[in-house]
C-alpha cells in the first residue's frame, strides 16, 4: 500500500478546468518533485491534496484513509500534511518561536511549555534557534522560509507539501533553504513544486512533469534527465536547465 495515493483528480475554477485527471502515488519517506510551466495547475494540485481547495472529482488516500470522503474531519488530516508556501505566510503578530508552537498548542492541545520546548527543537533543526524571539518582519526571506518549514515539521506530518519554497528568495538565500529540505529527505515524505533542477536531480526519488492539467511523464531523475520518453519533457527540461543551472 502506498502512503499517498492520488486518483484521477479533477478541479475547475468556474469554466476553467485546471486539473484534468491527475493520478500518482508516493511511498513513505519519499521525495517527489513536480515541475512544469507556470499556470499548469501545480499549486492547485497541492491545494487539492490538503483540501484547501477540495477537488471536484477523484480520490486522495493517505495512510490507507480516503481523505476526500466528506465525512472525514479535514482538520485532523491537515495536521498530517504540512504545507510550505512560496510567500512564507508566517503569522505576522507572532515571534518565530510562537509561529512554530501555535499549531501544537491550539491544534494538538499541547501545553504552552511543551509546545515551546518542541518548537525550540524544530527551530534548532532548521538552524534558527537564535532567532526564536524575532518577529517575521525582522527575519530575512531565507530565515522566514526556514521558520515556515519548522512550523510544518512541528506537527509531525507524514508528508510536507512545498509550493515553490525558494521562488520568492534572493539567489544567495536559496541554498540554506534547500539544505534544510535536503536534510529532511527520507525522514518525512516531501512533495515539492520547484524549478531548482539541482535539488530535483540530487534529492528527488521521482520527478513528475505536469503540463496543461495532466501529468505528461514521471519517473526517477536519472531516467527523466537522461532518457525522457516524451519529446515535450526533453524540451522543457532543456529549457529550464539553462535557466536555472545544472546544480
Amino acid at each position: 500500500m502506498h502512503m499517498l495515493e492520488v486518483k484521477d483528480i479533477h478541479k475547475s475554477y468556474g469554466d476553467l478546468e485546471v486539473l484534468k485527471g491527475i493520478s500518482f502515488s508516493m511511498n513513505k519517506g519519499e521525495t517527489a518533485v513536480i515541475i512544469g510551466t507556470s499556470g499548469t495547475g501545480k499549486s492547485t494540485l497541492l491545494r487539492c491534496i490538503n483540501q484547501l481547495h477540495p477537488p471536484d472529482k477523484g480520490e486522495i488516500w493517505l495512510d490507507g484513509v480516503n481523505i476526500t470522503d466528506p465525512k472525514i474531519d479535514i482538520n485532523k488530516i491537515r495536521q498530517k500534511i504540512g504545507f510550505v508556501f512560496q510567500e512564507f505566510n508566517l503569522f505576522n503578530h507572532l515571534t518565530a518561536l510562537r509561529n512554530v508552537s501555535i499549531g501544537l498548542e491550539k491544534v494538538k492541545g499541547f501545553t504552552k511549555e511543551k509546545a515551546e520546548k518542541k518548537a525550540i527543537e524544530e527551530l534548532k533543526r532548521v538552524g534558527l534557534k537564535d532567532q526564536a524571539k524575532q518577529y517575521p518582519a525582522q527575519l530575512s526571506g531565507g530565515q522566514k522560509q526556514r521558520v515556515g518549514i519548522a512550523r510544518a515539521l512541528a506537527m509531525d506530518p507524514t508528508i510536507i507539501l512545498f509550493d515553490e519554497p525558494t521562488s520568492a528568495l534572493d539567489p544567495e538565500l536559496i541554498g540554506d533553504v534547500l539544505d534544510v529540505m535536503k536534510s529532511l529527505a527520507h525522514k518525512v515524505a516531501m512533495l515539492v513544486v520547484t524549478h531548482e533542477m539541482g535539488f530535483a536531480r540530487n534529492v528527488a526519488d521521482e520527478i513528475i512533469f505536469m503540463e496543461g492539467g495532466v501529468i505528461v511523464e514521471s519517473g526517477p531523475p536519472k531516467q527523466m534527465f537522461q532518457n525522457p520518453k516524451k519529446a515535450r519533457t526533453k524540451e522543457f527540461l532543456g529549457r529550464i536547465s539553462t535557466l536555472y543551472g545544472k546544480d
Binding site: N50, L52, N75, K76, I77, R78, Q79, I81, G82, F83, F85, E87, F88, N89, L90, F91, N92, H93, I102, G103, K106, V107, R151, A152, M155
Partner: peptide, 23 residues
C-alpha cells in the same frame, strides 16, 4: 490582513473558528 494568514492557519489543521481567534 493578507489572505495567506488564514490559509497558513488552516493548513496547520486549525478550524476556521480557531484561525479567526488565534491568527
Amino acid at each position: 490582513i493578507p489572505e495567506g494568514q488564514m490559509v497558513a492557519a488552516r493548513s496547520l489543521g486549525m478550524s476556521k473558528l480557531s484561525a479567526i481567534r488565534n491568527i
